[in-house]
């Protein structure tokens, strides 16, 4: 469960200008079609961790939102386990860029969102406890999100997402705004959680190192409109290190070059 097929996906926005650029111009020109994504064909295997990489504004978050059902494609199809994606579903949970924990609920209540249909309350509590402890937030069950640090908030959200037992997990720049050390730790935790639950994880990032260290595969988007510029499966065992695997280091320079930075600093 968690097999994703994307075929001929295209996304366009129509931008309505309020004023014409020059007086007397054709009113039809008020509308401007902006094509963001074009000709996207991808297939992700069950249990794969895929990093989607690209420069800012390339539409990688849009792509993720479309796959998750929060946004509609202009044309093309997305199927998760042979089923056309029509909207958001508890089978594929989205972890948002900025904390989307409900601020009026405690950690326990937030993590319980995906478990609220369990009839047996004692079993529900047990499950909640299990997931909270998995992300090492034991003892913080009754804290509100504002009482947690940035890293703890992300962990609580991750616990909430996997508690719902989804087939696919979407993460949109999950480490934005964390300090360096927390970022490194969160990266490791995400990899561990993936290894433990074995679900498909798609995560969008602009951080090349995150993509290469974490992903089973990387997909690089680029161009205007964005297309898939590179797709590479990474067979390197974890923990990964650029010095341990010179191949990975070479790939890193390649991606840097592809994204418009001539040399990796």
């Amino acid at each position: 469960m968690g097999h994703i097929v994307i075929e001929n996906l295209r996304k366009e926005y129509s931008n309505r200008r309020h004023f014409s650029r020059s007086p007397g111009s054709n009113p039809a020109e008020y509308r401007e079609i902006i094509r963001v994504l074009d000709d996207i064909n991808l297939e992700f295997e069950d249990g794969e961790m895929v990093s989607i990489l690209g420069p800012s504004g390339c539409g990688k978050s849009t792509l993720l939102r479309i796959i998750a059902g929060f946004d509609k494609a202009t044309s093309g199809s997305i199927r998760i386990d042979q089923k056309e994606v029509k909207g958001p579903s508890p089978n594929h949970i989205f972890v948002f860029q900025h904390s989307a924990l409900l601020p009026w609920m405690t950690v326990r209540q937030n993590v319980g969102l995906g478990l609220r249909n369990i009839e047996d309350k004692a079993r529900m509590e047990e499950k909640i406890k299990e997931y909270i402890e998995m992300v090492e937030l034991g003892g913080f069950e009754h804290h509100y999100p504002y009482q947690l640090s940035g890293g703890m908030q992300r962990r609580a959200e991750l616990a909430r997402a996997i508690a719902a037992n989804p087939d696919v997990l979407f993460m949109d720049e999950p480490f934005t705004g964390l300090d360096f050390l927390t970022h490194m730790r969160s990266r490791e935790e995400t990899v561990n959680v993936h290894e433990y639950i074995g679900k498909t994880i798609l995560f969008v990032t602009h951080d090349i190192d995150d993509a290469l260290i974490m992903g089973d595969r990387i997909v690089v988007l680029g161009g205007k409109p964005s297309r898939v510029k590179m797709e590479r499966t990474l067979h390197f065992p974890r923990p990964r290190d650029f010095e341990k695997y010179p191949e990975l280091g070479k790939l890193r320079s390649e991606v840097f070059l592809m994204l418009g930075v001539p040399y990796a600093v």
Binding site: A68, F70, G87, P88, S89, P90, I93, F94, F96, H98, A100, L102, L113, G114, A164
Partner: peptide
């Protein structure tokens, strides 16, 4: 609006 998306996500 993110909170409504969370609501939709968790059905």
């Amino acid at each position: 609006p993110v909170f409504f998306q969370v609501a939709a996500n968790f059905n």
